[in-house]
Design a protein around this nucleic acid. Structure first.
Lengths: 230, 230
DNA sequence: ACCAGTCCTGATGTTTTCGTCACTGAATGC
DNA sequence: GCATTCAGTGACGAAAACATCAGGACTGGT
């Protein structure tokens, strides 16, 4: 009888129903602090810390942890989920007005590449998801799959199997992030755009068109782990 | 004053010096049991178990753990390393006689794809490495990089940046494994070969040639986690 | 046959972590 | 106002995990 199915969109105020009492907001804030702390720890690769340390990092009382999660695993799952979903929603927002599936895909991929450098903490949380990113039903994956499928439908992509395309794209996005982290000297924009270009060609676009799409300007974006976006 | 710098090549007998006393072999066996247990646990995703449980799974005494490793992390690192190195060496062996870099790359990739189904435990250990696979200096990665570089040198691959090629290939290999695990109904050979084909095309091969290379027969292979290979 | 060296072993004391629970204070609704 | 509800809190007893160490087993050399 504590919290029911409110896990889906934890942090931000539910847009539809404005009914948010002060108590609910405080609860959400406490939860968000914990999720945030979980993300920091994941980014640092320190996922086997004591619960006490988590709550201290989140600056909440020890007991509060169990008001929201039953185990560390549950918290870390929620933390990854939150990051994935937030990133996915952001990409959605930034590519909503693009009619061309190829361009929508390219923009998302390129923006994600930039993000590895611009927001390393968020990026590391995404990377920590590992390969199961590509079979996840949440966050980025369904959106990428949708873009790819739309590209196939509209004849932009001539490659047949959307899931193989997703494997190529998702795996590359992951690996690209790792590469950029481990080689800070690399030009992230250039590397990302070249990778995107290669993917577009693989999906069936002509070389020149792929290059052209990847040279288009990108929207400015500001995100942070705590959810603000502009 | 226990063991000095003998960590580098733990398991197998040092090839150069044949001096392997019975005591050394016993030690190696104990260590191998622990590594093996570590791999099983990684494959099951249970990496936060008590050390006691690890030694029980390995069927060695509790104290033996500390004869070989200082922490769980060290064991798991060694376990991943072992799997990576073993896999890499196997691929090397099976593609040693191939002159064409494109074919060597394709064979390795296709064999790796088959392996995800044929040896799910080994595969899961590899996948657990995550994206840092592509920047690792051990195991598969340096070999793949070598094949790709050779392909570029010999003019088989016209794509310029070997590291971007590696990102595409490594990320895809990872994601492909995950896909095959999560969708048991998929034809692993077909899916793998299509992916390989797409990669070859991306690297600059003509479509027909890529298809032809990926339809060639593969060598039989038998591996197991404990190291036997035929 | 004996000795020295090395690894194996599990019982043990110590330390860490867990998860509960009774209490607190704020907020809500009557 | 006043009572009730609910999330927050941290101290505490219980449980688990740690890492050591003294003794045992096996080896290899003398």
């Amino acid at each position: 009888m504590k919290n029911e199915g409110v896990l889906s969109m934890p942090d931000a105020v539910r847009p539809s129903e404005e009914r948010s009492t002060r108590t609910e907001r405080r609860k959400a804030r406490t939860r968000a602090s914990l999720v945030r702390a979980g993300q920091q720890l994941i980014a640092q690769g320190r996922t086997s810390v004591a619960i006490l340390e988590i709550t201290q990092l989140a600056d909440v009382g020890m007991g509060s942890f169990y008001n929201h999660f039953e185990s560390k695993e549950e918290l870390f799952d929620a933390a990854v989920d939150d990051a994935l979903e937030r990133h996915g929603a952001l990409m959605d927002e930034l590519t909503a007005d693009l009619d061309d599936a190829a361009e929508a895909f390219a923009q998302s991929f390129r923006l994600t590449g930039r993000l590895h450098r611009a927001y390393p903490e968020l990026s590391k949380v995404l990377i920590s998801t590992g390969a199961r990113l590509v079979t996840s039903k949440r966050g980025l994956t369904p959106r990428a799959l949708r873009d790819i499928a739309r590209g196939v439908e509209t004849g932009r992509f001539t490659m047949v199997d959307p899931e193989i395309a997703l494997v190529l794209a998702g795996g590359s996005a992951l690996a690209l992030g790792q590469l950029l982290h481990d080689h800070p000297e690399r030009d992230d924009a250039k590397t990302t755009d070249e990778t995107t270009e290669a993917l577009l060609r693989t999906f069936g676009l002509a070389a020149e068109e792929a290059a052209e799409i990847c040279s288009r300007p990108l929207p400015e974006v500001t995100v942070s782990l705590d959810g603000s976006a502009a």
